[in-house]
Simulated assay, not measured.
Amino acid sequence: MFEDSRATESETSGSPDTFRVRQVTSQSEVSLMLEWVAAEGWRPGVYDAESYYRQDPTGFHLAEVDGVPVGGVALVKYGENFAFGGNLIMKPAFRGKGYARRMARVVMEASDMSDRNIGLESMVDLQDAYSRVLGVQFAWKNTRFRGVGSNTFTGVKQDDNPAALVPVKEVDFEHLCVFDASVFGTPRPAFLKSWISQPGMVALAAVTTTPAGEDDEHRQETRIAGYGCIRLSVESYKDVNFSRRIGPIFAESAAVGSQLFAALVATVPPGVPYYIDVPETNESAMKLARESVLESVSQTARMFTKGDGGVKCSMVYGITTLELG
């Protein structure tokens, strides 16, 4: 537990408010933070809270004024050398008072992250502010695209399918973790196990087979060439209650990325919107989004305190989640 419990004079009443920052004590408090995020139109996954909490129960923090939760932020550890900050949110009535800045500073200073590379997602126009306050530097831009489910969607035409698609739970989980870490930049087995098991999640692995060796020409060796997920998300677009968010799509080639994307989009009911976040540095992924006639709806900036986090953007056709990497 850590706190900043100094009194702050209220701009509205002139009376002192007691402001403090504390760690969340339950998954339900993480869900509360995501409810605030959903109210801002950020479209979190319906069941994301459990996956986030499984990764690092100590990584979520609430700001309170006079004992009432008014804001929150996450700083979640991955492995020994990386952490990701996200879900920075302050309830509207408490904005413009410096609370968000104080909350972020308290969490950064108290979490002992000096030896870790820290990543976060910023609105493009807030890059300079995050750089000054948190010491992060720009790495690349991400574009969020929106599509709408249709019975006529066939995907981008290609000569053949380079891999077989199977439910991700049919592949060896340790092999999946190794593949995921090779793209994401650091292992995250606890998160991944919960992520692919979310209710309503469609998770597919792209696998290829090759002869295992000359001694046994009939034995085949299977390897993972990519995987992708699509999940239920909270929607505030028109009259739809639940949309879909795609992420991640990690693939060793544009052909595999396109194959996974088409298979995931095919699961979206007609008329239901879906979203995918694409790193602009991956030209093949951006081309896939454009050729699929998706609408660009927003841009964000990925930032780090050290380098680029080891992310292989050339293999990222859909980011896992802007909220936590």
Rank of each mutant, 00 (worst) to 15 (best):
E3I: 01
E3F: 01
S10A: 10
S13I: 15
P16V: 05
R22G: 06
S26Y: 10
W36M: 05
W42I: 04
A49Q: 01
H61D: 06
L75V: 11
K77H: 05
K77P: 00
E80W: 01
F82I: 02
G85H: 02
M90R: 07
K91Q: 12
F94R: 07
R102W: 06
V106W: 05
V107A: 10
E109W: 09
E109D: 13
D112T: 02
I118A: 12
G119R: 03
G119I: 07
L120Y: 00
D125W: 13
T143R: 10
F145C: 09
T152M: 13
F153E: 04
G155E: 06
G155R: 03
N161E: 12
P167F: 14
V168Y: 02
V168E: 01
D172G: 10
D172P: 03
H175A: 15
R188S: 01
S197W: 06
A206Q: 08
G213A: 00
D216C: 11
H218R: 14
G228W: 03
S236D: 15
S236K: 15
F242D: 09
R244V: 15
I249N: 05
A251H: 04
A262F: 02
V268E: 08
V272Q: 12
I276C: 11
I276Q: 08
E280D: 13
S298H: 08
M303Y: 13
G309C: 07
G325L: 03
